[in-house]
Design a protein around this nucleic acid. Structure first.
Lengths: 194, 194
DNA sequence: ATCTTTTTTTAGATTTGTCTAAATTTTAAT
DNA sequence: ATTAAAATTTAGACAAATCTAAAAAAAGAT
């Protein structure tokens, strides 16, 4: 099957939201895609007839096995391109997201296969996130969030959960990148900052 | 300005057709783009209001300076990606056209700048066609067509004018590629074959 | 348990790029 | 110079993806 850019973006966003909650709501997806709830409902009917999601009116939705496989494939393409942009073209790791978002929709399996080989089969992208293999399997990397880190222990930054421009800007300001060694000095309970 | 994939394809096709005839006709463009004459007329009105073409009803059309610059930019993107696909990813030179056709629409000037540098500023693509620089200038390469080649003289194949799948298939069958040394044994006047 | 608020869906409209069929203009032929 | 043929444009329709406004359903509050 061949999917439109729009369909792929929906599938990818549903996938990402499912990392946090099993079933995804219309509003949260609309928010993620900077679109309106009505548009989400429309597209979801389409994805349902294409048998990529399980969807029951007013009940939220989730990817089925086919949708999940497709999502992992899109994620794979995205992360391989990010790796390419940073490690071959010399982009900074916080500048590649938008470009990879366009490249990921170029639909040639042969292209991705060769790109993967050219890059020497990388396991993680420049943000530290694992790259799914052709079958959608990816290495699970033991990760703790900052809130879970014990005070005064050294840890290595391996990925950045929130990739909003503001967050990336902030990390850059503090000179924090993948591989940086961090020490959490104290937790501030009243607002959760560290 | 930012242009749609469709607009870019029209501009590119008009550019290619202008290599042969100064002003392009509705039918020839429809044919080139595998679309209908009515669609061409519609799009041309749009390109006219966007000030990319000179167009007079029933009189054909041509790119203006802005349109020409855009076309050369698209050609540049296309040929750089073709070079990448062949020289970095190891594609065969007759398999890259369709993929480059998708990659060329990824709209990041920074991406193309870095790609160019990563590829070491190539002058020609894998088909031997020159790659325009950022300003749209490209090396003019002295070329003769097969019909113009004197009998029994050795020449080097530098580009392939007709890139239809049939032509590429035929060249492959005879083992002819860029750089191949050829000798024209005789001309057959009755059908022009060599 | 009822009422209010929030979420989701429906109905109908819009934009982009395309199409078919009909009308118009140009070109070619006599 | 007419007329026939070919090319081009217009008119009106359609599919994809979106939107706004209104209706319907679900969730939360008292």
């Amino acid at each position: 099957m061949n999917y439109s850019v729009s369909e792929e973006n929906y599938i990818k966003s549903i996938y990402h939201l499912q990392q946090q909650t099993d079933t995804v709501t219309t509003n949260s997806l609309a928010n993620e895609l900077h679109t309106k709830p009505a548009s989400v409902t429309d597209m979801l009917k389409k994805l349902q007839t294409k048998k990529l999601v399980e969807y029951e009116k007013y009940r939220g939705f989730k990817l089925n096995a086919t949708g999940n496989k497709l999502a992992l494939n899109i994620v794979r393409r995205h992360r391989l391109w990010e790796f390419f942009l940073v490690n071959k073209l010399g982009f900074e790791w916080d500048k590649v997201h938008a470009i990879a978002e366009e490249l990921e929709h170029v639909s040639s399996a042969e292209l991705i296969k060769r790109l993967d080989s050219f890059l020497n089969f990388p396991q993680t992208d420049p943000h530290g996130d694992p790259i799914p293999d052709t079958n959608g399997k990816m290495a699970v990397i033991k990760q703790l969030s900052l809130a879970e880190i014990a005070v005064k222990k050294n840890v290595v930054v391996s990925s950045v959960g929130n990739q909003s421009p503001e967050m990336l800007e902030m990390l850059k300001h503090y000179n924090i990148a993948i591989g940086t060694i961090l020490k959490v000095n104290r937790h501030f309970d009243f607002d959760g900052s560290v």
